[in-house]
Amino acid sequence: MAERFPSRMTSMSTVQLLFRDPHVLRHVFWLNPGNKDRPMAKLYRNNRAPLGNKITLVAGNSLPIKVEGLGSNRRHIVLKSRNPQLLTVSAVQVNDRMLEQSLRIEVRRDGVVTSQRTFLDAFLNDGTPALSKKDQTTAPLEVEVLPEIRLPADSTEVGMLTRMLLVENITPGLPGYSSSEVEECMKWMRFVFINRMQLGSEFFGAGKNINNLVEFVKAPNQVEGFANYPKLSTVLGDNLARYIEIANDGTHAKNKAFRDYIALAVATARLSESELGKDPCITKLYAWRTTGAASPGKNFVLFASKGGQDFYTLTDSFIKDSGKGGK
């Protein structure tokens, strides 16, 4: 930690000290025994952003924080968890001669299956373990603890669909991201595979007699990176790992956005065909490409763009020639 003072006080005037280091102002102010307006303790993240009155963490998270300011007894406050089985606070660096102390909030990893809420209260350090007196000037910090997110097993159809929906859609933070558009887009992707299975796998490079969705998605050159599912291409695997990491890092700015994104993919993967609703295209959806990309083939006709993807149906003549009528 950077030194805030010179190691020995020299005989300089207060004004000279102020000009040397602006942080000295707070210390001189504080050390003046006649000063009743002591700075209250304030909680910050390590990047100096205020912690606020409420934070969200995920099971297994560890959050380093700073507390600036002392209690009314001129000693550092002690933060105590109301639920120490769920969440603890430990000291990293505490020195009553320094205005700032470093602490760490840690959440238990196992056994958190539902969202829970607890508080950290500030106590005056009276030198005893009992810590009976609260610091009335420091508001309790509310902590919401969320369970760890895990994807459905990759051996299941829901697991495969979830992974496909996650990597094929645009994600939070990318230009044009809208959760409502992506939700619709995910459903439309489900329709594409349902319709392809009904029309016949042989028309989409999957060979004949494939009536299993996982085998269908694994068809050569159909969905990038899924040819050897459940082994995904390295880049897809790394993308999924990144999404899950952010979703399980309560300290990340996009934590909620990615938790919602993953929840959306899981929910859409779980919908039954009847729950999906009606195919938006009267001639049914059969393909998608990144918006603006060239057509997936001469037998495909652009239907509409949704969530960063262009969705296609088939030409009437192709459907007729398929003998299935697409119905």
């Binding site: 989409f204 490079g205 050159n221 159909q222 969905v223 990038e224 490409r289 057509s295 997936p296 083939g297």
Partner: peptide, 25 residues
């Protein structure tokens, strides 16, 4: 971690017909 990384020869085809419904070729 770009998901669309198209390598010449690996992810390209000679004609549009060969795209055949692929989401990326």
């Amino acid at each position: 971690l770009a998901r669309k990384e198209l390598v010449l020869g690996r992810d390209t085809v000679k004609s549009e017909e060969e795209i055949n419904g692929s989401s990326y070729l």
